[in-house]
């Protein structure tokens, strides 16, 4: 079953299933859904501490206290749960406007709203930066307010992909905190390996979830004979192409090689992008998020 008009508030509940789990414990006192470094009330046992150091007689460890030869009373400590800031770093450069079998700008808007919805459900703060080439077109401050997903959807619907380059992405990255943050980098990754390297290096040491919006028709043009006047939406440069079977095979091979080169860069940074080709399958997206090395 396909859902062709999900860009309304009613469709966003589908993203409630999205969840992210970081490998490392986070500092912080605010309660949330992620494992914290702090000890406190929680479900996951952490360690045992002297009652004097951790005066919580409700969690007195009777077995350990009785068996202690020095009669020291011990209490059990549990890992506290804390929240984090989910920062949506959206690459809205003009290349996103190119469309074959996917509306990648629509995918980006839907994902942004969906992640905002899931963040609220997971008690996380959600922030967003829409980077269009050299400038940041829209910035959403961290918030947990209800209706943020719908607002984000409406705001992004009034904007269009524009600009070229990665300057805005780098600028937005520089302003991000390094602790208690998960950066969701949503992009079509129409980048050179060097540019991607630059972005990922700038995002270190923050945990990053790259989401790769792919358009299969652009990657594999049809082998039908004809003339194509291709225009780069970022630079405006145009070039006529003589399309034929061999040409299409060459383009597909080049696209495959380019993707492999970008994946290698992700691997260098210990990342594995979640690739969305043409359409979003929420269940599959949730499964990929679960597997993502964060």
């Amino acid at each position: 079953m396909s859902f062709d008009a999900p860009l309304d508030a009613a469709g966003l509940h589908l993203f409630d299933v999205l969840a992210w789990r970081l490998a490392r414990a986070l500092p912080g006192l605010r309660s949330g859904g992620h494992l914290g470094r702090m000890r406190g009330a929680g479900e996951i046992f952490a360690d045992v501490a002297p009652l004097l150091a951790h005066p919580d007689p409700r969690r007195l460890d009777l077995r350990r206290s009785i068996s202690d030869p020095f009669g020291t009373l011990s209490t059990r400590r549990f890992q506290a749960r804390t929240d984090l800031r989910l920062h949506l770093l959206l690459d809205g450069s003009a290349s996103l406007a190119a469309s074959g079998s996917a509306d990648r700008w629509g995918l980006m808007r839907l994902l942004a709203a969906g992640f905002a919805q899931a963040a609220r459900r997971g008690q996380d703060l959600c922030a967003a930066s829409l980077c269009c080439g050299a400038g940041i077109a829209h910035q959403e401050p961290p918030s947990r307010r209800p209706g943020l997903a719908q607002e984000l959807l409406a705001t992004l619907s009034g904007l269009h992909p524009q600009g070229r380059g990665i300057d805005a992405l780098l600028a937005a990255t520089a302003e991000l905190p390094t602790e208690r943050i998960l950066v969701v980098l949503v992009s079509d990754f129409e980048l050179t390996p060097a540019e991607l390297q630059q972005i990922l290096t700038a995002l270190r040491p923050r945990p990053v979830l790259p989401i790769w919006l792919r358009d299969r028709a652009l990657e594999q043009p049809a082998p039908r004979f004809g003339l194509i006047d291709a225009q780069d939406p970022e630079t405006g440069r145009r070039r006529t192409q003589l399309a034929a079977r061999r040409w299409a095979a060459r383009q597909a091979a080049a696209a495959t090689a380019a993707r492999a080169a970008l994946r290698a860069v992700f691997s260098e940074h210990g990342l594995r992008p979640v690739e969305i080709a043409d359409s979003i399958e929420v269940a599959e997206l949730a499964a990929r998020l679960d597997e993502a090395p964060l």
Partner: peptide
């Protein structure tokens, strides 16, 4: 002014160019 209608293709600079296409481009 270009004679053919434009078709948006991201990062044209990263895509391969063949001699025949270049010749058609200049030829038009």
């Amino acid at each position: 002014l270009r004679w053919l209608r434009a078709s948006a293709v991201p990062r044209l600079d990263l895509r391969p160019v063949d001699g025949a296409s270049r010749a058609v481009d200049h030829g038009l």
